[in-house]
Computed example of a mutant assay.
Amino acid sequence: MIDFGFDKMAIIGAVALIVIGPEKLPRVARTVGHLLGKARRYVADVKAEVNRSIELEELQKMKTQFETAARDVESSVTQEVNAASAAFNEIGKGLQDATSGLDSVGLSGDSGGNAWAPVPEYKRPNKKWRLKRSAVPRWYKQRAGVRLHTQSGAARVARFRPPGLKR
């Protein structure tokens, strides 16, 4: 930018004092100060916007790198899972063939059933869990004086207020 030293500023001030006059000089100086402040803020905003756009581009590059890395990991994991499942299927077929050979000889404990029968799906037991809130029975809590329901302080005061002192 333009470099203004003290000597150049003094010369500009003397010329302005002569040209503008001492009456209007403070108002002109104030206006020039406001304009310079606006110009600096505008330049700072432009710099900030450029920095934001550069950071956004960097973030987008990082995003694409992470996405490609994630896709590579996903593909390698699926390949490994497929290879493992194929190996398990071969082992299962080998065992099934071995058990079918035992069934024909009569050494197996099955009565000719499939050795790889599907496992039944888990079904949650039908328990009424809402009724079982705690291990202590309700009648015991009532006898012991344990509060079963919570009350606010105002409701408790209203409950135990003598009947003649109503608001």
Rank of each mutant, 00 (worst) to 15 (best):
A86R: 05
I2N: 08
G145E: 07
G112L: 00
D7G: 07
F66A: 14
A70I: 11
P118L: 00
H34G: 05
Q96S: 04
W139P: 04
Q151V: 12
Q65V: 09
V46H: 08
Y122C: 05
P26E: 10
Q151C: 15
G33E: 07
K123W: 01
K61P: 01
I12D: 06
R167D: 05
I20M: 11
N114V: 02
A115E: 00
T99Q: 01
F6Q: 13
S111A: 12
A83D: 08
A158M: 04
P118A: 03
G145K: 09
E23H: 08
E80M: 02
G164N: 15
H34K: 01
S76C: 04
A14Q: 15
P26C: 07
Q96L: 06
V136M: 12
V50N: 14
A69N: 07
A10Y: 10
G94Q: 00
V119Q: 12
A144F: 08
A10M: 13
E58N: 08
S53P: 05
T64L: 13
K93S: 07
R52G: 05
R133M: 07
A155P: 02
P137V: 04
A14T: 09
V119R: 11
I12R: 05
Y140H: 11
E74V: 04
P22I: 11
G21Q: 06
G33S: 05
A155Q: 04
K24S: 11
L56P: 03
I20E: 07
N82E: 13
V43K: 11
A117E: 05
S53N: 15
R41S: 08
E80H: 03
R133V: 03
W129Q: 13
K93M: 07
V32T: 07
M9C: 11
A16C: 13
A117Q: 01
Q65K: 14
T64S: 14
F4Y: 14
A144D: 09
W139G: 02
I12H: 08
D3A: 12
L131H: 05
K8A: 14
G109D: 04
L165T: 14
R41N: 12
V136N: 10
V77S: 13
L35V: 08
P163W: 03
F4K: 07
G33R: 03
T31G: 06
L36C: 10
I54Y: 06
